[in-house]
Simulated assay, not measured.
Amino acid sequence: MILYYLLLFSSAFLAATILPFYSEVVLFALLRDGGDPIVLVSIATLGNTLGAVVNWLLGWYLLHFQDRRWFYFKPAQIERAQRWFQRYGFWTLLLAWMPVGGDALTLIACIMKVRLWLFLLLVGTGKALRYISVVYLTAWAPV
Score class of each variant (00 low, 15 high):
Phe13Thr: 04
Leu14Gly: 12
Thr17His: 10
Phe28Glu: 08
Phe28Tyr: 15
Leu30Phe: 14
Leu31Met: 10
Gly35Glu: 06
Asp36Phe: 08
Asp36Pro: 05
Pro37Thr: 07
Ile38Ala: 11
Ser42Trp: 08
Ala44Glu: 03
Ala44Trp: 05
Thr45Lys: 04
Asn48Trp: 09
Thr49Asp: 06
Gly51Asp: 06
Ala52Trp: 02
Val53Arg: 02
Val54Leu: 15
Val54Glu: 06
Trp56Met: 13
Trp60Phe: 12
Trp60Ile: 02
Tyr61Leu: 13
Phe65Cys: 01
Phe65Thr: 02
Gln66Phe: 06
Trp70Cys: 04
Phe71Glu: 08
Phe73Tyr: 15
Phe73Met: 13
Lys74Phe: 04
Lys74Val: 02
Ala76Asn: 13
Gln82Gly: 09
Trp84Tyr: 13
Gln86Trp: 07
Arg87Leu: 14
Trp91Ser: 14
Leu93Asp: 09
Leu93Lys: 10
Leu93Phe: 12
Leu94Met: 08
Met98Val: 14
Pro99Glu: 06
Val100Arg: 12
Val100Thr: 14
Gly101Ser: 05
Gly102Lys: 12
Ala104Arg: 01
Leu105Arg: 03
Thr106Val: 09
Leu107His: 07
Ile111Trp: 00
Met112Phe: 13
Lys113Met: 07
Val114Phe: 06
Leu116Thr: 00
Leu116Ala: 00
Leu118Thr: 12
Phe119Val: 03
Leu120Tyr: 03
Leu121Met: 10
Leu121Thr: 07
Leu122Cys: 05
Gly124Ala: 04
Gly126Tyr: 02
Lys127Trp: 03
Leu129Tyr: 01
Ile132Cys: 01
Ile132Leu: 10
Val135Cys: 02
Ala139His: 01
Ala139Phe: 00
